[in-house]
Design a binder for these strands. Sequence first.
DNA 1: CAGTGGTCTAGACCACTGG
DNA 2: CAGTGGTCTAGACCACTGG
Lengths: 237, 237
Amino acid sequence: MENLLYKRIQTDIKSQIIAGIYREGDLLPSENDFCQLYSVTRSTIRQSLNALVSEGYIDKRKGKGSVVLQQTRRTLGLLTVKGFSEVVGDNKQPVNTVIIDKPALSAWEENFFYHINEWEKKAGCISLKRLRCVGDDPVMLETTYLSNMNLPGFCKRPFINGSLFETLNRQYHVEITKVEQDLRAVLANNEDAGFLKVEVGAPLLHIYLKFYTSREHLFIYSSLLCNTGKYSIGNKL
Amino acid sequence: MENLLYKRIQTDIKSQIIAGIYREGDLLPSENDFCQLYSVTRSTIRQSLNALVSEGYIDKRKGKGSVVLQQTRRTLGLLTVKGFSEVVGDNKQPVNTVIIDKPALSAWEENFFYHINEWEKKAGCISLKRLRCVGDDPVMLETTYLSNMNLPGFCKRPFINGSLFETLNRQYHVEITKVEQDLRAVLANNEDAGFLKVEVGAPLLHIYLKFYTSREHLFIYSSLLCNTGKYSIGNKL
DNA sequence: CAGTGGTCTAGACCACTGG
DNA sequence: CAGTGGTCTAGACCACTGG
């Protein structure tokens, strides 16, 4: 286990947030309360809480206390990590996801768009294909690939709240640590045009993503094809 | 001025890094040295140094010291903030910039792609247009707009190292604090196709950027048109 | 080995939030 | 007004780096 005081306290409080013991909008116990609770000084508690701030779990307000943040606002400020709905430049309409290919285990494609290491090859590839819609408009065609790196039952159970990242986080304790993006503009081919309801030859935004995780040798790859005609793809940093 | 001890020390050390008194790769004085130098305790110095770590100026190595980082690696991990050359997915070929329209003061365009506030309108708009090339290949057509918010001599002098951001930072002490991106795929029109040497109707990546700065009411807007046929646009977070 | 940054204790004073 | 987080002092012990 962790042998540092502040790390132990940090993961302890984090677990309680994830478990829902402290809920979104709640005030955490004050720093002085925590001092008594864990029998440590305020500096140590402050180290734990500040780490939780930079991880995005809480926000501190002077004179008031530490507020528990929305779970979806966590992690990196990037495409799809935040969830599809926050990325599309319209938040009035409901967002729907249509699963085209359910998660299934197979071999990795030849000439995969990123380099795959030996461990990933041995573990095999789980892939799934989803169509993201705003109202009735199909907007994004997403194919996701990840290695089957000790993820029992992954293909059998549905995602928590329909979210891949939430499922990985809660069910398998996997967190995203880093992201690489690769952007291109392309013309729609026959198949993509069909899914996205655009004409063949329409311009599409093509994004390759590689997510690094807290689990060794587990990476997540996504290929996103976006129809940006009606909705653009936003991104704040 | 700043009235917090650790803030004053932080900006003091930062200035010395920017001024080149501490250079890239140098070890800063140790935390204990700084304690004596500024007559404060180590906690205060550590607060200053940790702030500089998260601003990307230095890196701390246990048992060794604080290392001054490369100036270009600073600021946000995003497009063009890093400089064009780091963004394009090829670092073997030399990168060139052709200035199409030099910086010049004018009125803001009607129907500008972002909302402009009253202060920006009053100050007037400085705009410039540049073509970014890898070797001889034109890759990115960039039009930049900023309000003339107390930037004397901006249109007359050339940029430091050809970089807008470096010039703003060193000459005017303006730093980028936040970025918003908006991505689209479009088809090349006549004019853009000419500059980028592609056929009319070729797919282009269109990026709108809004940079927030440390100076009140000063924002920087960029419109980027990218030919991603040969070079894709990369992005690490 | 001396020197470094990382962790932790035990205090103090302050400006700010909200009743 | 009592309680909060932000800043700051003055110490201590540790694991790690590099000669």
